[in-house]
């Protein structure tokens, strides 16, 4: 399966998802695989609705 560690680029920035998605087929949908970089502390996470900052801010900000 995929490497379960966030990819470290040259500058030490962690990318929390696989890029690119490989081995795709027609008539199939693909959600990118998330990779762990960092998590928010518990109380901040509870307020945000998730421990993962990369899963916030999608589909417009509310």
């Amino acid at each position: 399966m995929k490497e379960n560690v966030g990819m470290m680029a040259a500058g030490g920035t962690c990318i929390p998802l696989e890029t690119p998605i490989e081995n795709v087929r027609l008539a199939h949908a693909y959600v990118p695989w998330q990779l762990l970089c960092g998590t928010m502390p518990p109380i901040q996470s509870l307020k945000a609705g998730t421990i993962f900052p990369e899963l916030t801010g999608h589909y417009g900000v509310w």
Binding site: V31, Q34, A48, T50, L55, H58, W62
Partner: peptide, 14 residues
């Protein structure tokens, strides 16, 4: 909070 949980669940089902 509940809205954000839906986004996270979508990622997991994906």
């Amino acid at each position: 909070f509940l809205r954000e949980r839906e986004v996270v669940h979508f990622q997991r089902f994906g």
